[in-house]
């Protein structure tokens, strides 16, 4: 049966359109996709632990950063931060549920109950962390990629995984369009301001790292800073192509890695959670499905 499935899967890949191929690959690779996703989540959780990022480790910051976002207001009205972060035992339980639900989702990829629990708790975690840490970080990679796994029906899962891909494309396309709309894509104000602050902090602390040398070079040669800024904007804009075709996803994987490298070197921002959204691009799905096919073949023989 496994051999037939693998052969049929291969046949579909050769015969149908990229969208159909994407949906089919996603469907067949689902259990392995879930395992890969939750193993990455668990690795991120290890990083959280050592960086003191779990709610029980952050604790109840008395000055909550709600900003103008009614969703955060709702949490404050319901006194959720005080209830969870304000009580060490409840906070530890909260973190444990988060980790355990991820572990179960990894061990048992054929069910979705633990994923639903994980999603609800991670959504709460995401909002609580932003309230307590003093900034609204958009580390939404885990949320965007986990959402489809909540649905046990294969067809719905495949469609939602494609939706997560579209959302990933939307994030970058939208960022580029905002820059074009506001006229900041060809303006070096943002990048020079960021670099100035970084340089001052580095000077004070006696930093001589490679990153500091790059910052210094860009600050002195503002024309290069502007070129780097424009390249980053163009990389963001390139994601628009994914709305029209699945054929160029390979290029988008490369562009994302380039963007991430630039973001790390220039702005100093790397969201490891957002790396998970790469899973929604076609080459990664194909790669996972290929491994899945091999595993099926090994099992049958």
């Amino acid at each position: 049966m496994g051999l037939i499935t693998a052969a049929f899967n291969y046949y579909l890949q050769k015969k149908y359109s990229p969208l159909n191929n994407y949906l089919t690959n996603t469907t067949f690779a689902r259990p392995l996709l879930q395992r890969v996703f939750f193993s990455a989540v668990l690795l991120i959780f290890i990083y959280y632990y050592f960086s003191h990022l779990f709610i029980s480790q952050v604790g109840l910051n008395p000055i909550l950063f709600q900003e103008i976002d009614p969703a955060y207001w709702l949490l404050m009205i319901l006194k959720i931060p005080q209830l969870i972060a304000g009580n060490t035992i409840i906070a530890i339980f909260f973190d444990l549920i988060l980790v355990i639900s991820a572990v179960i989702s990894f061990i048992k990829p054929s069910q979705s109950v633990s994923v639903k629990i994980f999603f609800v708790f991670y959504f709460l975690y995401y909002m609580l962390f932003n309230l307590l840490s003093g900034h609204h970080y958009v580390n939404i990679g885990i949320l965007v990629t986990a959402f489809p796994f909540m649905f046990s029906r294969n067809e719905k899962f495949a469609f939602l995984f494609a939706c997560s891909r579209y959302y990933f494309l939307f994030i970058f396309t939208s960022a580029a369009l905002w820059k074009l709309w506001r006229g900041s894509l060809f303006h070096n104000g943002q990048i020079v301001t960021l670099l100035q602050q970084k340089k001052l902090l580095a000077t004070i602390s006696g930093d001589t790292s490679l990153r500091f040398q790059i910052d210094l070079f860009l600050l002195i040669h503002k024309e290069f800073a502007l070129v780097a800024w424009i390249i980053m904007g163009v990389l963001e804009l390139s994601f628009i192509i994914g709305f029209f075709s699945y054929k160029y996803d390979k290029i988008l994987v490369a562009n994302y890695i380039l963007f991430l490298t630039g973001s790390f070197l220039i702005v100093g921002i790397v969201n490891i959670e957002n790396l998970l959204m790469l899973m929604t691009l076609f080459p990664i799905i194909k790669m996972i499905n290929k491994v899945n096919r091999k595993l099926v073949l090994v099992k049958t023989t």
Binding site: Y72, S174, A175, R182, Q190, T193, Q196, E236
Partner: peptide, 25 residues
């Protein structure tokens, strides 16, 4: 231009700012 989680605005440093002549840390 209102962010209501999960409806995010992905501005990503898109605001047009002039290079300041002072820095606060």
């Amino acid at each position: 231009k209102l962010e209501v989680t999960p409806f995010f605005l992905f501005g990503m440093f898109s605001e047009k700012v002039n290079v300041p002549d002072t820095v606060t840390i």
